[in-house]
């Protein structure tokens, strides 16, 4: 199939929206990055100064490190979600019921999730420490209040929040694997585990690669729960790139610099995506 008219017709509307509403703004944002601008009133051209400052900004690199760590945890958690999906898609009783239940948390807005987890992490009244106390732990941690634990504590709700999202995608992808192939394998005497690993997994490798990228990039630019639950604190211990950018722009009146941070975030995302696509390229494009 090759038809210029149809290709244009099919891609142009989406492409136009993308260019006008995402690319033009980000280009403008890159331009603001060349300015000394509080976001209020006049701006002044300062060339690459913001970008140069970004390169040696320890706080930015610390927050980039936190974002990167979140990315690693998120990608690793995909394996768990994949395993759950494999179980759900096998013909066990009640899988339909379990699947629906498992996806419910993803319906909740960040406001609700943040409130729930703040209550769970509450050092005195919270569930987590009550549980620990039941097991006789003394000096229970203060979780979000301690710079040593805050970052890891807040990863838990973030990673959990997306469980439903990925289980949903994997489930749909696994359901997509034609019955005939599985049936044929079963007749040949393959065990359910073999079917899962040797047939189903390769069949959804394209989807899996997409989710790796989604979760990595999604983590690198993650913002919501960090902003609501810790505000990047205590004292920057849970700051990530997006919350750092937000703070510079909306709280510290440093719009020019914040734009540069946003650009830095984009470049890091690009680099990481390129890297992962190289790493996962080995057995590309399993088709049938």
């Amino acid at each position: 199939m090759s038809n210029k008219y149809i290709i244009t017709l099919y891609t142009l509307p989406a492409l136009l929206l993308l260019l006008v509403l995402i690319y033009v703004p980000i280009a403008l944002s890159g331009y603001y990055g060349l300015m000394d601008w509080t976001g209020i009133g006049q701006m002044q051209f300062i060339g690459l100064e913001n970008y140069a400052n970004l390169m040696k900004d320890e706080k930015f690199w610390a927050s980039a490190g936190h974002s990167f760590l979140l990315g690693i945890f998120s990608v690793l958690s995909l394996l768990l979600y994949l395993a759950v999906s494999l179980v759900l898609v096998s013909k066990i009783k009640g899988s339909d019921f379990f699947r629906k239940i498992y996806l419910i948390p993803m319906l909740l807005s960040s406001v609700a999730i943040a409130q729930l987890w703040l209550k769970i992490f509450d050092p005195s009244n919270g569930m987590l420490n009550k549980l620990l106390e039941m097991f006789g732990v003394e000096n229970t941690p203060v979780w979000l209040a301690d710079p040593n634990t805050a970052l890891y504590a807040i990863f838990v709700p973030i990673v959990w929040q997306y469980a439903g999202f990925y289980i949903l995608i994997y489930y749909a992808a696994l359901k997509n694997v034609p019955e005939e192939i599985i049936e044929a394998a079963r007749i040949d005497g393959a065990t359910p585990l073999q079917i899962a690993l040797k047939i189903k997994l390769p069949m959804i490798s394209a989807v899996f690669k997409v989710t790796i990228m989604l979760s990595l990039v999604g983590s690198l630019k993650y913002f919501d729960l960090i902003y609501v639950m810790t505000g990047g604190g205590p004292n920057g211990a849970s700051e990530v790139m997006a919350s750092y950018m937000y703070k510079e722009a909306f709280e510290l009146n440093n719009f020019g610099y914040a734009s540069a941070v946003g650009f830095g975030l984009l470049v890091i995302c690009l680099g990481m995506t390129w890297l992962t696509s190289r790493l996962t390229k080995s057995n590309d494009d399993v088709q049938y």
Partner: peptide
């Protein structure tokens, strides 16, 4: 369909996913 620029278009969309929302807010 097979066309020359398909890779570029796909790339544009992928990069679009990486752009942080708050960077675009004021221009938008």
């Amino acid at each position: 369909m097979h066309w020359k620029l398909s890779g570029l278009v796909l790339g544009l969309f992928m990069v679009g996913y990486m752009i942080p929302l708050h960077s675009t807010l004021i221009p938008l």
